[in-house]
Design a protein around this nucleic acid. Structure first.
Lengths: 351, 351
DNA sequence: ATCACCTGTGGGAGCGCTCCCACAGTACCT
DNA sequence: AGGTACTGTGGGAGCGCTCCCACAGGTGAT
């Protein structure tokens, strides 16, 4: 077996050097072919490709990473316990979008949960070691230090819901304001006048924007805003039930509810039913997300659809661009892109 | 800034060399401390650790991987489309077990779906590049070529359900035979005499073993086995419904059904209900997996519990051992461990 | 005093790539 | 003929580690 090098290798994987020897060219040329550089003649390229095929050459990722100072991997970081990840379709849809887009590339996707303190410490260590070229961040709360850590380490990152209007990271979001507004306007157009809102977690910026949209829609419709019709929730089913109880106790005359998520709406529905209110006859109900829950609810739930898969795809696009530009946009003095995708109201029997 | 080396570096991450200089020791010594070698004096170790802390040194994974020829990463390969992964609690439980055990180590877990042909080709490439030190394989069908590829590449691997009694890979499994047997015996003890079985996909070895357990239990109870009471399913809800219809048409006198999964049982329940059979009064129903579905079914479903999380933990244990031994067990002439975990029948109102 | 044998340490060589400089060859101007 | 500019190519240097050989210094036997 014709190998060179001092340490006798035992017929392991072929190296660039061996491919070069076989093709009768230099190391640099093989590298150029492997990496798709245009500065190679057609004949040479063909010879190299033949040698690669004959030897079954596969580049050594570690060597490449060391020499080129990149990893060809990106992380999808979910700052939640795994349980929530599996429970909420939001995440799997996002993953699907990212995965689909990523299949076009040579990049590797890592899924990292950072729900517990321990996991977060691990993640920090991981990022400090620069084991990924970029990070996709979903579901981040307003006070999360993760984005700052990323900025400090100069790791390209894209966030799925900005933390505030002044988000410094590149972000992709759906139009929470517009979505909420369309839901409230829809209820107004159905002749409802006492429209309540169960909010999401208010430390999530998008939840605040939904409240804004709801408020503005009612005000512009000339209904005015009754603050007693607004009850905070937390995106969960129990939170929705709790809020619904509070609302019914406070305003028994309400005739519609706009919930900040489908899961919240499910909790509200349960309480409405127990209290003998018919949906939609007595109380119209609208949710947010247009998840499977909405379609399977009894009656089927009107809901605001977010293009989550597309958000995933766009996030990846933006991240890859940032990585290609090799620096976070801010350190190049550019403004961070803030992409906002439109929502769509899906009308069903509940309203 | 005190850096050496020809290519002027711009104050990037500290290297081993810099830590060594700071601690006043050699490169080798720092490496020994980092890797926990015992051959270092306490004083030196302390000095190195101080330097590491001061400089915020984090080892460069790529360099380590290149020099040591390992990646410190393992893959959990799911030969299914992502959709099924999220739909079936089996996978997330398994992931939880693996994740918990892995948190103890420095290893990185990759989640890889290989449902489509395209994804499988990608995976093959990935494995050929030896980008992971080992592989955890779940839900593999009898004719899957993946295990052979792994063996050929000499990548340590552990499989979650053996493909056959002659599985060549290290495997972890629950006692499908015993689990099915306990389910059937339970129905017998409840006085049922016409006990049907809806099987799983029969190209999955575990599904076959469940049929065996069912058969033996009935035979040993002196009931004999009526082959018309066995109907093939495929672990899905639709499959369960279809099989239930066939069974009712063929054997209207059946008084119990043992389904190969909870999801299958859910499909069967739907049909039984439509046909006006009461559960458990007319027909007793038993499932398999003891998933959330079983607890939430109406009536709650008796089911065979598999310790899936523990299976995940055990798989990881075995894999890490094999990696530490640095060769797949078979090439060292050892017999592959075949670990089998016990199941437990959880009795509820459906039987 | 000599030898053997520990423990702890330093540093050369090498892992398999990419980057980049150097240079041969060709083409097209002055 | 000489200059300039490009294309295609080879190969040195270096990425930041681990591995391992060499060796200093100590200890206890002969």
């Amino acid at each position: 077996m014709a190998t060179h090098g001092a340490r006798g290798r035992s017929g392991g994987r072929p190296t660039l050097e061996e491919v070069a020897a076989r093709a009768g060219v230099g190391r640099g040329t093989v590298s150029r072919v492997i990496n798709g550089s245009p500065r190679v003649s057609d004949a040479t390229r063909a010879a190299v490709e033949a040698a690669v095929a004959e030897l079954g050459y596969v580049p050594n990722t570690a060597a490449r990473a060391l020499a080129a100072n990149r990893t060809d991997a990106i992380a999808l970081v979910v700052p939640e316990p795994e349980t929530r990840f599996f429970a909420e379709p939001y995440f799997s849809d996002m993953l699907k979008g990212v995965g689909a887009e990523l299949a076009e590339t040579e990049m590797q996707l890592l899924l990292i949960f950072a729900g517990s303190d321990r996991e977060r410490r691990r993640l920090a260590q991981y990022l400090a070691a620069h084991r990924v070229d970029g990070v996709l961040l979903v579901s981040v709360h307003a006070d999360d230090p993760l984005p700052d850590l990323l900025a400090q380490l100069e790791i390209p990152a894209v966030i799925s819901g900005p933390r505030s209007a002044a988000e410094t990271l590149t972000s992709v979001d759906s139009d929470n304001y517009g979505g909420a507004r369309s839901a409230a306007e829809h209820l107004v157009s159905r002749g409802r006048t006492r429209i309540a809102h169960i909010t999401g977690r208010l430390d999530v910026y998008g939840a605040q924007r939904r409240v804004d949209g709801y408020r503005d829609a009612l005000r512009d419709a000339g209904h005015g805003v009754d603050e007693r019709l607004i009850e905070p929730g937390d995106f969960t089913e129990e939170g929705g039930a709790r809020a619904m109880q509070a609302l019914l106790a406070r305003c028994p005359d309400l005739d519609a509810v706009f919930a900040a998520s489908d899961v919240t709406a499910a909790g509200a529905r349960q309480v409405l039913r127990e209290e003998g209110r018919r949906i939609p006859d007595d109380v119209a109900l609208v949710g947010y997300d247009d998840s499977a829950i909405a379609r399977h609810m009894e009656p089927p739930l009107t809901s605001v659809r977010q293009p989550i898969e597309e958000m995933g795809r766009r996030m990846l696009d933006l991240l890859l661009t940032e990585i290609a530009d090799r620096r976070p946009a801010v350190s190049r003095g550019l403004e961070r892109p803030q992409m906002v995708l439109q929502t769509e109201l899906v009308t069903r029997a509940s309203s």
